[in-house]
Design a protein around this nucleic acid. Structure first.
Length: 463
DNA sequence: AGAACTCAGGTAAGGCCATG
DNA sequence: CATGGCCTTACCTGAGTTCT
């Protein structure tokens, strides 16, 4: 952005995506010269071009816009604004590295931010420029301007644009660490450090898992810590609530997936099925399995049975065992976390209010309200209202808004009919991405915390 | 109401690795 | 070496939200 804005400050913002796309494509071409190009956007397209020995120099215009001027097909990346607009711009704006200058009502120009108390984009851009080197920067910009790059030029550019290492770029690395640990950009008057505290919590997690597989679930770790010592800290509490909610969404998706599986198999395949009868049949199938494991009676009674013993996990196959296990998991989590109900609800209201998602605190509330219900009544009502009708309601709302149908089944006049399949997958906190970033910054490695990581914890009084 | 925007999960290709 | 299942990576679709 800094390179684009300084010499081109008065340029029509419509030109900016063209600059961005050429620069991104050029960067991908440069990475084809290295043998460590994993994670570089557009690398497949760039590699294919690079492998074509008939090409002696690369046309950046051709790689970024197809013959009809579109970007969707035949270019390095489909999104018109490039990787920058699709993945990075919103986040960079949130952390104040870039801003948007409104040129006209419709057109905005991305600019590197300049001052205002946060680490700003210009400072970081300058450190990056120093890491890459003046000669490489000017050659890079020269190629983008000319719209063409030769194999020789790519080969000399690869020395400067090393995407995976901060060796020789310590200033830039230290600024990035500073960036991660600075105050959150404020949406309100309250000063917060949720990002910093999450990152420090992650480093503590690494520190406390010496020699273990660092891909072990971070949210689960925080959840377990919270159960040992409940904390008012919104970062602890937030990840605790996140974990519970994630689990709820996962178990609910297992229920939906299996309902769809039952609908899509004999004897219901391609038929309209009486919803009430179907729900009854599924409930019988599930409660038979639960009672064979000793879980029966009222909701209250099942929950207190779970209080007695640790939930035993087994490999299960078949729709009803999977559904029974999913429901048992939710009852178990309810039992374990019930005493924190008020604080979970408070966390949801304060920090996740915008998500608009069904959350686990509602499930706990259902269990409280329907504590005296027989288990089969609770399960029937839950499957019908919270799983089946819930999906239909959401799909219908989307259809009203957009005209795009996403129904997995049809529901009419008390009858249900399968339409399409869906798989149960984990929601994901994307903590892996955070982990990669902290590792690249040399805060830790596979053996554990590194001196820089120790230093971060020490500076923040976490040792 | 419809366009525009944002992002998370889906998908497929390709690499890795165990097995025989 | 061949086979095939599993995992990771690169890219894109389309769900859901917000703007006009």
């Amino acid at each position: 952005m800094d390179a684009f804005c300084s010499p081109h400050a008065s340029v029509d913002p419509k030109q900016q995506p063209k600059f961005i796309r050429k620069a991104e494509y050029l960067l991908a071409l440069i990475q084809t010269q290295t043998n460590d190009a994993l994670g570089i956007p557009g690398i497949n397209y760039a590699s294919a071009k690079s492998a074509d020995s008939d090409i002696s120099s690369f046309d950046l215009q051709k790689g970024t816009y197809n013959e009809s001027g579109g970007t969707r097909t035949g270019t390095y990346f489909a999104n018109p604004g490039g990787v920058f607009a699709q993945y990075y711009a919103r986040s960079l704006n949130d952390i104040k590295l870039i801003g948007e200058n409104e040129v006209s009502k419709r057109d905005k120009l991305y600019v590197a931010s300049n001052g205002d108390g946060y680490l700003n984009g210009k400072t970081l851009a300058n450190a990056f420029a120093a890491s890459v080197g003046v000669d490489n920067i000017s050659l890079f910009l020269q190629c983008v301007d000319a719209g063409v790059v030769s194999r020789d030029q790519l080969s000399s550019l690869k020395e400067g644009f090393r995407m995976k290492s901060f060796t020789g770029a310590e200033k830039e690395r230290d600024l990035l660490i500073q960036l991660l640990l600075q105050e959150d950009f404020r949406a309100s008057d309250e000063v917060t450090y949720y990002r910093k505290n999450t990152l420090l919590l992650f480093l503590e997690y690494i520190k406390n898992q010496p020699g273990e597989d660092h891909n072990v679930d971070f949210p689960k770790y925080v959840y377990q810590q919270y159960l040992k010592a409940p904390s008012e800290d919104p970062v602890y509490a937030g990840w605790y609530a996140y974990y519970l909610d994630d689990n709820y969404q996962y178990q609910a998706s297992i229920l939906l997936k299996n309902i769809l599986g039952i609908l899509n198999a004999d004897p219901y395949k391609d038929l309209w099925v009486d919803l009430g009868a179907l729900v009854h049949e599924m409930t019988v199938g599930i409660t038979d399995i639960l009672s064979s494991h000793g879980y029966s009676g009222t909701v209250e009674q099942v929950c207190s049975l779970l209080k007695e013993k640790e939930l035993q996990w087994q490999q299960v196959s078949g729709a009803y065992p999977a559904m029974a296990e999913a429901l048992l998991n939710l009852f178990y989590q309810t039992t374990v976390n019930e005493s924190y109900f008020e604080s979970i609800r408070d966390i949801q209201a304060r920090y996740f209010a915008m998500s608009g998602m069904d959350d686990f605190s509602r499930f706990i509330q259902l269990c409280k309200e329907q504590a005296k219900w027989p288990l089969e009544d609770f399960i029937s009502a839950f499957l019908e209202k919270q799983i089946i009708r819930k999906h239909f309601r959401v799909a219908m709302r989307k259809y009203h808004q957009t005209g795009i149908a996403s129904y997995k089944f049809l529901l009419e006049d008390g009858y249900i009919r399968f339409l399409d399949g869906v798989e149960a997958t984990h929601m994901d906190s994307r903590i892996d991405t955070v982990a990669d970033f902290l590792r690249e910054l040399e805060l830790y490695n596979k053996d554990g915390l590194l001196p820089l990581g120790e230093e971060c914890l020490e500076l923040e009084g976490r040792l």
